[in-house]
């Protein structure tokens, strides 16, 4: 690297960076693809779907908040293992995780998404959008499923998923960053390694551009999540205060 915000990496450096990020991703991705393929036939029966649909709204929100909180902890570990992340100042580590952890979770969700059946792995089995009906936010759920469907159509490899997740997490345009240039440098290196891997995998030239669009779509999804949480909190302030995991509140409801 020449040390500025536009790093020029050698092929070997690109490969090395891609390998490290892919290793970090596989160590912290919660589910391996092989495990998921074995579980793909386990779909919720109609009576199980109805059980979720009949849950009180606050109980279903709590369940989803718990699942998201579990996933956040794995994203934090992923971040810690990205070369250079722990060298950033603590303020910036927190800013990036606060803004990007849910975005990475939505990217990771595409690995546990069955595009043929339009189902996602949730609470032990594959769930269709109607499982989430009692949350009372059909538009958010359908946007999340549409996003997963469209990400799946790109058929990313694990290495591409890993680099795209790191690229999203290292977004240098988040508000409140103190050392923006350092983050920018890391993000550009990651983007460059992603581009290198896409070329190596002989992917269509447009894939990187499509991934940039997906990064904007992720921001919109997270914005919608915040809106829905704020609306839910207005109606059920005590449920958020007493039932939601402290880490979820720290990240999304502070």
């Amino acid at each position: 690297s020449n040390g500025d915000a536009s790093p020029t990496l050698t092929l070997a450096e690109h490969d090395h960076l891609a390998q490290i990020i892919c290793k970090s991703h596989l160590e912290t991705c919660q589910y391996l693809r092989e495990e998921l393929q074995e579980m793909s036939w386990q779909r919720f029966l109609q009576e199980e779907v109805e059980k979720y649909q009949n849950k009180p709204q606050e109980a279903m929100w709590q369940l989803c908040a718990v699942k998201i909180t579990d996933a956040v902890q794995y994203v934090v570990e992923f971040a810690k293992r990205i070369d250079g992340f722990m060298d950033l100042c603590q303020n910036d580590q927190i800013v990036l995780l606060k803004a990007g952890s849910l975005e990475v979770i939505f990217v990771r969700m595409c690995r546990v998404f069955d595009s043929q059946n339009n189902t996602v792995y949730f609470d032990g089995k594959f769930a269709s959008p109607d499982v989430f009906k009692s949350l009372g936010c059909d538009d958010l759920i359908s946007s999340v499923f549409d996003f997963a469907q469209s990400m799946c159509s790109l058929q990313l490899t694990e290495e591409e998923f890993a680099l795209f997740s790191a690229f999203v997490l290292l977004s240098a345009d988040r508000s409140w960053l103190r050392e923006k240039l350092q983050v920018e440098k890391l993000q550009r290196k990651t983007e460059s390694a992603l581009q290198h891997v896409l070329q190596k995998n002989r992917r269509d030239d447009g894939v990187l551009e499509k991934l940039r669009c997906k990064a904007s779509a992720l921001r919109a999804l997270c914005g919608l999540h915040s809106e829905k949480l704020a609306a839910f909190r207005t109606v059920y302030p005590d449920a958020v205060r007493t039932l939601f995991p402290p880490l979820y509140k720290e990240l999304f409801a502070a």
């Binding site: 160590e27 579990d70 902890q73 794995y74 934090v76 603590q90 927190i94 880490l247 720290e250 502070a254």
Partner: peptide, 20 residues
């Protein structure tokens, strides 16, 4: 730091849920 106590702890911890 106080506002993001848990996140701060997770970043400092050498053992994590992933390792356990």
């Amino acid at each position: 730091k106080e506002k993001h106590k848990i996140l701060h702890q997770l970043l400092q911890n050498s053992t994590s849920p992933v390792d356990l």
